[in-house]
Each structure stands twice: as C-alpha cells, then as structure tokens.
Design a protein around this nucleic acid. Structure first.
Lengths: 261, 261
DNA sequence: GCAAAGTGTTGCATATAGCGCAACTATGTT
DNA sequence: AACATAGTTGCGCTATATGCAACACTTTGC
C-alpha cells in the first residue's frame, strides 16, 4: 500500500458511508457526462482509478441495466434501467402531467421554447420542454442542472426561500460562468427581493452565453417552491417589450399550476 | 457470524463483482417498486437486510440525488438525479424524438393508446406513450418492463432475432402471468414464425388481464431490433376488424421509423 | 511478418471498508 | 408515564473490494 494515488476529493471531514457505492455512482455520472460511448480504460483514467475496479463495477452496473455496452465497440453508455426508473418516478409526479398544457400554451404564445424545471434542493433540473414554432433547440436541454444563483429558474425559486436557507444553498462564492454572471452577494440579495415583488425572474447570458430566460416559481400547498417554468430565447430576441408581454403570462401559468397542486 | 440471514437469491454460482453495489442497486429498485414513499425500516424488512446498512446506503444515495426524502415524513422516493441522467440519455436517443409524430398519429387514428418500448436485451421497456382520445390510462405504464414471450412488443422483437438468441433470452420456462399466457415452447416458436410473416404481433390478456395490444418492431441499420411501437386497448375493444384496420398502420409506422434511423 | 502498444478480464493475497451489534435520540401510541 | 417504532452512529471483526500481475485479444507500426 505504498502509492494509493487516491486524489480523494472528499476534502477534510471524511464523510461516513459506503465509499465503494460512492465511486460507483461517480462512475455512472462520468459515463453520463461523456458525449459518446466510453471504454473501460478511458473511464479509469478520468476517475483516477484502477482499470480492474472499473471493469468489475461496470460489470455489475451492466448486469442491472444501469449501463449498457455497444454491441460492436464494447464501449459503455447509460442503460435503459435508468430510463425505466426515471419514467416510473416521473409518472408519479403529477406536476409533469399538469405542466404540459401550460408549456404548450406558453410556447405557442411566445413563439419561443418553454420548459419545466424541478427543484432538487440545490438547483433546478430541466425535465420537460416544448419547442416553440421555429425556435432553436439546445436551449433548455432536458436533464441539465441550472445553478441557483445565475439562472432564471434557479433564482425564481431562491426568491421563495427564507434567507438563511438561501445562504446555505449558495454558499460562500458565486461561481462565474460568463461575463454577466451575478457574483456579488449583495447584488444577489437585492435581486431576490425584486423577484419576490415582481413574481418572476429574468436572466440574460448569465449561465449560457446568448441565452435569455424569464421564469416563475411553482409552489406546493405549503408555499414551498418545487419547480419553475420558464420561457427561453436567444439573447438578441429579448427586449423590454418582450418582457412586458411574456412575464404576466408566465406568472399567471405558475400561479394556476401552484393552485392545482 | 452465526446467523447471517442472507436469503441470497443469487442461486448457485456466486457471481463475482462488488456485492455491496449490487445491494445498493437492489435497494434503489425496491424504492422504485414501492408505490408510496418508504421508510428505512420498511425497506430493511423488504430486503432482509439490517437497518443500519440500509440507512447508510440511503444516505449515500441521497447525497447523490438518487433518492430523496420527503421533507415532512422522512420517507424515501426516487431522486431527481435519476431523471437528470435518464433525460440526458434519452435526449441522445434519436428514436424518441422520431417516434412522437407516429405515436400521435396512431393514437388519433386508433382512438386508443399508442406507445414506444425500447429493447434492452431481455425485454421491452415502455418509454413513451400517447393517450388516445378518451382512452384509459394505466395501460402502457411508462417504465414498465414487458417480458419477451407474452407481450406484443416483446414478441414482435423476438421474432426478428435468430432462434438461438431467442432460446437464450426466454430460458427454460415461460413464466405464466394470466390464464392466457403462452407457456409452451413449441407454440411460441410457431407464433414467432407467424409474426415474422405478418410483420406484427397481437397479444390479448397474456401479461395484464383485459389488455390487448398490437405491436411491430423497429430495426436499426443493421436490421437488429431496437424497439417496438404498439397500440393497446381494453381487451373488449379488440376484434378481427380492429386488427385488420390497425395492424397495417402500425407496421407502416414501424417501417418508416426503421428507415429513418 | 513480428513487435509493440492499447484494451479488457480474472485469480490471488492483503488490508480496507462494510457489516452486525448495541446504545442512543427522537416520535408517536397504549 | 411507560412502551413501541423509527432512524442514526460508534465500535470491533471479518467479509469483501482493491491493487497487482498475468493473460487474452485487437490495433498500430515498421
């Protein structure tokens, strides 16, 4: 046990809990993060782990359908079991069904892309989108994680939370993604107050360059935010008129959805 | 180490590979299988495992967003990370996008529920469905696993595979789900030949009682089956006329989809 | 043609890391 | 109040995952 490598990102405290499972999950995420199918060696390199471990872990994941290997190349992709589990879960989530008509209406009226993102306690995950007529795709990519401080959906939700919770979530430093990302805590606080008053949030090129979004939060019966709906567009489509026209529609839709939960 | 319990369903051979990971995955599936949120003790009982292990494993899964706990009750549900991964994956799968218009057309024309199921090497997983006007839901539940021998989608796909592969997949005994399930190997073989000729498969009350489906397989460029599309309905809606009307539509849709892959 | 480099799987021995146990806190039930 | 049920955590033991090395195979180069 001389050179264990172990870049071990788990900083100081050494969280308790099964760490082999932790590595397996990281492995899954790594597979997911890669655009094209990946081989065992490639994965072992990216994770700084021994090939043999990766190979064995993948074998188990594959037996369970969480990853699957390309029949020809032997490389790995995510597996269908994941889809199966996710589908079963989403099916139980009434909010998805509920959102469809609103998203379709929004997409039609705005002629842009509308989307639903679910709050997971740390950020908003895009789960559903409706492309407007002639709108560009790759704007609200399903499955993408929207950071809380610099996306319209994220901030719309933050604005509904008590300030100590907000502090806990955003942490000490606000990560910068573009030249326009909010990175100042005071500015963020003011922005959140403003959102609470207006009922919606606008974000322009803060997370993804050249993309602008308008979002409003959806609340459950206990007034806790659970999701946000948004309309997104190329930044150059955006202007004050557009905002004035779309924002009330989005707010209204979010209100109605909240009421029906 | 006196009483290890370990009902250990892994029969004879003792497959190699990380078994703690295996248990964690089983845990995930158990959470998924339960209709409503489940507690730690309940889970430990269902899996015949000690509470402490389950508790720790769940903690890790939760940190990673694979399960999430209800804020009030503390019980567990599947987490959004699963949705995130699955979405990213499905987004890459052209077949999903491709299928939508066909499914909508089929649902409209048939006035029943149409669905897309993906082949995972062992069975077909429902991933997309379009409810026809006035059709009942809970018919082609998303995420559900369709066994190969007794569902329309499963058999439509089996019929496209070489017979030795089929033998490998179905195994020795054909599990019975209802009084109408095919359980005889010879009958199955004849049925598969017939499907190969007709180009589609019909299944009535073989897997789920009182549900009838008509399905056709979708093939990739190398003529390997990757999915099936189906129209499903309450068994009492089904008759020879319906079959004669719908089957050609389904087969045509499957052909067109195959061509576009 | 044979090296040489790269990829993936498996057996074995070691020590790491997960497990069972039991003590403990926190809720809810008679 | 007492009791039952749910959930978490520290500790010691050993079951188990890991690293290593040898092997099988494919691809690349000269």
């Amino acid at each position: 046990m001389v050179k264990n490598a172990a870049p071990a990102d788990l900083s100081s405290k050494a969280l308790q809990g099964p760490s082999s499972l932790q590595r397996a999950l990281d492995l899954l995420k790594t597979v997911a993060a890669s655009e094209s199918p990946v081989g065992v060696n490639e994965l072992s390199r990216r994770m700084g782990q021994h090939v043999s471990s990766v190979s064995r872990t993948l074998a188990t994941l594959e037996r369970n359908g969480f990853v699957s290997r390309d029949t020809d190349t032997g490389r790995f992709t995510l597996g269908l079991e994941l889809v199966s589990l996710a589908r079963k879960h989403l099916n139980d989530l009434d909010i998805l069904r509920l959102s469809r008509p609103y998203l379709e209406q929004l997409a039609e009226d705005s002629r842009e892309t509308s989307s639903l993102s679910l709050w997971n306690g740390k950020g908003a995950i895009n789960v559903e989108q409706v492309l407007g007529p002639g709108s560009i795709k790759h704007i609200a990519v399903p499955g993408r994680f929207n950071p809380p401080h610099c996306t319209a959906t994220g901030r719309a939700i933050l604005a509904c939370l008590p300030s100590d919770t907000v502090a806990e979530i955003v942490g000490d430093s606000l990560e910068r993604f573009t030249a326009h990302t909010i990175t100042d805590h005071d500015a963020l606080r003011r922005e959140l107050t403003s959102i609470a008053e207006k009922g919606y949030c606008v974000s322009i090129s803060e997370f993804i360059s050249e993309v602008a979004s308008i979002a409003a939060a959806v609340l459950d019966r206990k007034q806790r935010p659970v999701a946000a709906i948004a309309v997104s567009m190329p930044a150059f489509h955006f202007n004050a008129e557009i905002e004035a026209r779309l924002a009330p529609m989005i707010v209204a839709a979010a209100r109605e959805m909240s009421a029906k939960l």
